[in-house]
């Protein structure tokens, strides 16, 4: 076996590190615009979905979004927009952030002009269980929020509750949606996320 001097080993590793760092920096810089565009497009797609535009191509998402939405205000947890929905009416886009079972969940809710009725929602998650918690991003769950009210019959703020099927009789139909069976924690997370988000709008 050949023996190597310490200087050789040190230089060897140093040279390797420098080469790798330089190549990776170049790649990272080169791809950055694409990565950022992806993040932007993802957000635009989500908001468009909540506003009723079901099938927008990713490539057109940003252009479509810019033509339909207008920024209202910036907050610590995201930006509020005013958007023209697919049915021709206008609404407010509310950013939502919360925690699911395994990690972060987030989304957008589109509220009617008077901020009392949900026109649509879209959710996303970092790492919920596929087939269980991950169902919050499915159409069936998201659609169940349409037309729900943030206030009860007496005009008190109640948010929209996510409760297990058959356990929410005490809450009026218009103030609740069915939770996803088998995904209790994720559903609770959505419930809390909505309550937090709407509470801030109320204030």
């Amino acid at each position: 076996m050949k023996s190597y001097s310490n200087t050789y080993m040190f230089l060897y590793v140093s040279a390797l590190v420098v080469i790798i760092a330089v190549v990776l920096s170049l790649v990272s810089l080169g791809l950055r615009p694409r990565r950022e565009a992806n993040v932007q497009a993802e957000k635009a797609l989500q908001i468009l979905k909540a506003s009723g535009y079901a099938h927008v191509e990713r490539a057109q998402a940003i252009v479509a979004f810019d033509s339909l939405a207008e920024k209202e205000s910036s907050r610590s947890d995201g930006e509020m927009y005013r958007i023209r929905c697919a049915d021709g009416s206008t609404g407010h886009v509310i950013p939502l952030q919360g925690k699911g079972l395994w990690g972060a969940i987030w989304g957008y809710a589109v509220l009617s002009d008077d901020l009392t009725t949900i026109k649509g929602v879209s959710f996303a998650h970092k790492s919920e269980t596929p087939g269980l918690g991950a169902k919050i991003t499915e159409e069936a769950f998201e659609c169940s929020f349409e037309g729900k009210k943030l206030y009860d019959a007496d005009g008190h703020f109640v948010s929209v509750k996510v409760v297990p099927k058959g356990k929410g009789e005490a809450i009026a139909e218009k103030n609740r949606v069915d939770a996803i069976s088998g995904a209790t924690i994720t559903s609770r997370g959505v419930d809390k996320m909505l309550a937090d988000g709407f509470q801030r709008i109320k204030e």
């Binding site: 990272s28 791809l31 990565r35």
Partner: peptide, 8 residues
């Protein structure tokens, strides 16, 4: 990096 850029 490639995945983040191409297959988001």
């Amino acid at each position: 990096q490639l995945l983040q850029a191409m297959l988001y």
